[in-house]
Each structure stands twice: as C-alpha cells, then as structure tokens.
Lab assay of single mutants.
Amino acid sequence: GATAVSEWTEYKTADGKTYYYNNRTDESTWEKPQELK
C-alpha cells in the first residue's frame, strides 16, 4: 500500500511549546496527531 505523507507539520511557539498544524485542513492541535504516532 502507499504510504500517506503526513500533512502535519510540527511548530514551536515563542515560549517553546510544541504544536502541530495540518496544511490541508487548516487545523492545529496541541496533541500529537494519530498519523505521527
């Protein structure tokens, strides 16, 4: 099967917290998305 390329990108805020942003859905989350686990 084809490997899905994750749409999630990991970013850090100014105070060093990590969050994740999805370019396709324009969604952001503090929790690590399922695709990255």
Rank of each mutant, 00 (worst) to 15 (best):
V5K: 12
T13F: 03
Y19P: 01
A14M: 09
Y21P: 04
E10D: 00
E10I: 06
W30I: 07
Y11N: 05
Y20M: 00
K32N: 07
D15K: 03
N22I: 01
K12A: 06
P33C: 03
W30T: 10
Y20P: 03
T13A: 06
T9S: 10
N22C: 05
T9H: 12
Y21I: 08
S28K: 15
Y21K: 10
G1I: 12
Y19W: 11
Y11M: 15
E35P: 04
N22K: 01
Y19S: 01
S6N: 12
A14K: 11
T9F: 09
E7H: 08
T29F: 08
A14W: 04
V5L: 12
G1H: 13
W8R: 01
E27Q: 08
E35F: 07
P33F: 02
A2Y: 10
P33T: 03
E27T: 08
E10L: 03
K37I: 15
A2K: 10
G16V: 00
V5M: 12
T3S: 15
W8D: 01
W30D: 09
P33A: 02
K17W: 04
E7W: 08
A2F: 11
D15S: 08
T13V: 01
N23W: 15
R24V: 15
Y21F: 05
N23L: 09
G1D: 13
V5G: 11
E10A: 05
T29P: 02
T3W: 07
N23G: 07
L36Y: 12
T9M: 11
S28T: 15
V5Q: 12
T29M: 09
K17N: 08
N23Q: 12
E10F: 02
K17A: 05
T9Q: 13
K12N: 06
Y19T: 02
A2G: 12
A14F: 04
T29H: 05
T13E: 03
T9K: 12
E7V: 06
Q34V: 10
T29S: 11
T9A: 11
R24F: 15
Y20H: 01
E35I: 05
D15P: 00
E7S: 07
P33R: 00
E35M: 05
T13I: 00
S6Q: 11
E27I: 05
Y19Q: 04
G16P: 00
Y21T: 04
K17G: 04
T25H: 01
E27G: 02
N23M: 13
Y21G: 02
T18E: 08
E7R: 03
L36Q: 06
E31R: 04
W8G: 00
D15R: 01
S6T: 12
E10N: 00
T29Q: 13
L36R: 07
Y20S: 00
V5P: 14
E7I: 07
V5T: 14
G16I: 00
W8A: 01
Y19D: 03
T13G: 08
S6G: 12
E27S: 05
A4L: 14
K37E: 14
K32M: 11
